[in-house]
Design a protein around this nucleic acid. Structure first.
Lengths: 216, 216
DNA sequence: AAGCCGTTTAACCATTTGGTAAAAAATGCT
DNA sequence: AGCATTTTTTACCAAATGGTTAAACGGCTT
């Protein structure tokens, strides 16, 4: 009843197909939750867009709430990784901050729906966010704050409140995902292009670096 | 049938009480829509918080959709006014921009729920926003852009894309309303205080002014 | 070929929710 | 006081929606 002792999750034909389905559902769900919010999204809509019947979808994710949790977990995982970026790549502060900004905007470009789901969650008062994940995000964040504080105390940048600096970076970078509808209207485009995101990256980096007294 | 020819809307006892009710409902509705989104908000909840029966509330606003429209119109009106600020108060560019930022953050403090409703609306792709109001916002905005362009061409500030500068200002200032839940967690407070908003104003102004090469 | 296990469908259901219709109660006006 | 107008309540309702249960289906292994 088991002749592949090395592999952990067995990998049958079944589980392969299941993985595909689950991945597709999660992707579609992210879209739908982003567009309609938790309450506005119906499991019917999600199932339909994923090409399944409602009951069949419920076979893979037994409730709407659970599905939403998974979607949220997914993007929060990515978020967490992109946060820790600050104390990665070992160059000067300016480059680090610039890379941080670049990555954040890149995330807005590649995962706009995830960003929107997260944004809506926060706007509504984070009703579905577990304490566990909150504290995880928080502790990861505090490392970044300490790093910026050290830069300040070493006189490498202006003495500003690091927390508010991060609020500024997060908001300016996420706005290209969350408020894309508004930005598209103003720029007169149907959809933001890669070069729009490049413009954004350049401007945000420039203003933040110069504005905090960092130079490359 | 009319013995007060001067006043326009008659002002009977009825209409006075009606005004009060409508104002209260609108205020509560803004709260509830901000907290639960359009679909998550129920007219029952709104009515209850306003101290009325559902049916009675429907007497004042005949449908949920209409009520939402009114809430949206309300804040958009305020938005429009705060936009035009740029070409108000006739001092130097730096002061003007700083005032603009200050006002925006002030709005985040005083009308956080309106901001949240608007934000959710945009995140969801602005499904309820009429073309009329979009073009109005747009034309008002373009005036501001032209002003900034003139500052640039006169060498008063760095040559940056004004549109993106505004995206940056809007996002950084609105984040104190929209993402207050996140910010509160990070700052470890139950609710943001006036001095938090003051800190925010100072930092955002400082970074943006210095970052764009403006000085007072 | 047969049975087993994972998947899909069919039939159903209880609750929630936005909204209607009409009667009853207040309130203002002459 | 008596009538008209406005406000509030009572009684309903149809559609939408999240979810359950059980039966049918299909392919893989022995």
């Amino acid at each position: 009843m088991s002749n592949n002792p090395a592999e952990k999750p067995k990998q049958t034909q079944y589980s392969r197909s299941r993985q595909k389905h689950e991945a597709r559902i999660l992707q579609v769900a992210e879209e739908v939750f982003a567009q309609f919010g938790y309450n506005g999204a119906t499991i019917d809509t999600i199932a339909e867009r994923a090409g399944l019947s409602k009951q069949n979808m419920l076979y893979y994710f037994s409730s709407k709430h659970l599905l939403y949790q998974k979607v949220l977990e997914n993007i929060l995982g990515i978020w967490l990784d992109s946060m820790a970026l600050l104390d990665q790549s070992g160059k000067d502060p300016a480059s680090k901050l610039e890379n941080y900004i670049r990555r954040k905007i890149e995330l807005s470009r590649t995962r706009p729906n995830g960003s929107k789901v997260f944004a809506t969650e926060i706007i509504n008062g984070a009703p579905h966010l577990s304490e566990e994940i909150k504290t995880k995000l928080l502790s990861r964040f505090e490392e970044d704050v300490r790093l910026v504080e050290s830069w300040i105390s070493e006189g490498m940048m202006d003495p500003i409140e690091p927390k508010h600096l991060f609020f500024m970076i997060w908001s300016t970078t996420q706005t290209y995902a969350d408020f894309s509808a508004q930005i598209e209207i103003i720029l007169g485009k149907k959809k933001l292009t890669a070069s729009d995101f490049e413009d954004a990256t350049k401007l945000v980096s420039r203003v933040i670096l110069k504005g905090t007294g960092l130079r490359r």
